[in-house]
Design a protein around this nucleic acid. Structure first.
Ligand SMILES: [Zn+2]
Ligand SMILES: [Zn+2]
Length: 464
DNA sequence: GGTCAAGGTCACC
DNA sequence: GGTGACCTTGACC
């Protein structure tokens, strides 16, 4: 059985150095680690006389993708996840995509579906949210890159309520502008101006990309909703279209710019189409609306993690599974690549701040403190629902009376199980040694706790 | 200057 | 049109 650790960075995957051995993949299968004798020095496992493992990769907290040792996944929007999930989440939020699951949110079960490709967008986004990805981290503050940064006053996600925090940001951005940095020049030269909302938040002056044609949005100006409307509604926030002046990511029409650049300076990351700038007043209005809604969203993720982390029972791994998950069909993200940008190979991700401190500080081996079966109300709603299924790929299950996710039936195929039921596991690092690998890490979902909303720990750190 | 986490780009399906 | 790998950017240390 796996062990948890408070010291090991979350998301890391270790494998025993004892011998080449099959290790469970997040897809439910097994694979032989390409390296079990890596030079990377993992934290020594001392408690319980556990063997020392070697870092072999990270696991995406959303889809379960396992990285190579060289290409450790990093934290994106608060969760250690793969690039694919990062991009998906970003696009969904940025573009206010509104997904609906035709199977009533039952595309998959378990912590990770056997094949994320089979999961609809709605369920995938829900998975992102459950993993702990933060909507407000997407373009929370308009700037090209950079980190959230530490904010005085605690919390990893500062608001934009126009108080000192934004003032500080504002000053910093102004400073960058005054430095004559490339981007600042670009923005200004491109007609973009430093715009401050009424609360002092600096707006991105960068021009926006423009669709070459057929802006399919009902309201093409509503380009930036922190959450798709239906999903927003599904998580109890109502239907709120949030706007932003922020540029939307990189569509290119027919491989080239469908519209002329509005700035003399190409966008970073390669040439592309930029949206034309909007009216400053409009931008201000949008920004204010965005911030207003983000303030409502804020309680979502962290409290969700806090509540559910402490309410789930220890993971009862299935002893005998009536159903054997099919082997995972690796997607393109499965062919590992080196991360050539900045981090040296083997750099470890360590971001416990994304989790409630209480989760990390208590119950090292039993992160789920609440007695088994304790009902917990989650701010997370049942998955987005829609009309009757029109396909037979994933037979919809009969409706469940509980507002929370229904329990799993041990005899049902995952596709017939309740939606996105995770395999409860510690948010703490879990070491899987050669001797500890007994079975699929996430095959059939374990018997659920009735009435408890299963929660997927953000960046569930599992060490192999 | 290195690290990290943002957003952007664009080939591919 | 959506996806995901690759890339740049910029704040933080
Ligand atoms: Zn992923
Ligand atoms: Zn679905």
């Amino acid at each position: 059985m796996s062990l948890v650790s408070e010291e090991t960075p979350p998301g890391l995957l270790y494998v025993s150095t004892c011998s080449p051995q099959s290790v469970p993949t997040p897809q439910g299968g097994y694979s032989t680690p390409e390296t079990t004798t890596a030079s990377l020095s993992p934290p020594q496992r001392q408690a319980g006389g556990q063997k020392t493992g070697t870092v072999t990769g990270t696991m995406c907290a959303v889809c379960g993708e396992i990285s190579s040792r060289e290409t450790m996944f990093r934290k994106h929007y608060g969760v250690i996840c793969c690039e694919a999930c990062k991009c998906f989440f970003r696009r969904t939020v940025q573009m206010s995509r509104d997904y609906k699951c035709r199977y009533d949110g039952r595309c998959t079960i378990g912590r990770f579906p056997e094949n994320m490709k089979q999961v609809c967008q709605a369920c995938r986004f829900t998975q992102c949210l459950r993993a702990g990805m933060k909507i407000e981290s997407v373009k929370k503050f308009p700037r090209k890159g950079g980190r959230e940064g530490k904010q005085s006053g605690g919390g990893d996600s500062e608001n934009s309520d126009g108080t000192g925090s934004d003032q500080a940001k504002f000053q910093k951005v102004l400073k960058n502008f005054s430095k004559g940095k490339k981007r600042a020049k670009s923005a200004i030269a491109g007609g973009g101006e430093e715009e401050t909302s009424t609360n002092g938040t600096l707006f991105s002056p960068r021009p926006k990309q423009v669709k070459a044609e057929s802006e399919t949005d009902v309201d093409s100006d509503l380009r930036f909703s922190p959450c798709p409307t239906s999903l927003m509604s599904s998580i109890g926030l109502g239907d709120q279209s949030i706007v932003s002046s922020l540029p939307r990511g990189g569509d290119v029409v027919n491989g080239e710019s469908g519209v002329p650049h509005s700035t003399p300076t190409p966008a970073p990351g390669g040439g592309g189409v930029k949206r034309t700038p909007q009216d400053p007043q409009t931008l201000i209005s949008k920004k204010m609306r965005l911030e207003s809604t983000l303030s409502q969203l804020r309680p979502l993720s962290p409290p969700l993690s806090a509540v559910l982390y402490t309410s789930l029972s220890p993971p009862p791994l299935p002893q005998s599974a009536p159903y054997t998950p099919p082997s995972f069909q690796h997607t393109s993200s499965a062919h590992y690549h080196h991360y050539p940008y900045s981090s040296h190979p083997g750099s470890v991700v360590n971001s416990p701040e994304s989790h409630p401190p209480s989760v990390y500080n208590s119950h090292a081996n039993t992160p789920y403190a609440t007695p088994h079966g304790t009902p917990v109300h989650s701010p997370l709603p049942s998955p987005t629902t829609v009309g009757p299924a029109s396909s037979s790929i994933h037979p919809p299950r009969s409706s469940v009376p509980s507002p929370l996710l229904p329990p799993l039936s041990p005899n049902l195929h995952p596709a017939q199980q309740s939606p996105l039921l995770p395999e409860p596991r510690s948010c703490l690092p879990q070491l899987v040694t050669a001797g500890s690998i007994q079975g699929p890490p996430r095959g059939p979902a374990p018997p659920p706790v009735h009435g408890v909303l299963p929660f997927i720990p953000a960046a569930g750190p599992v060490l192999y």
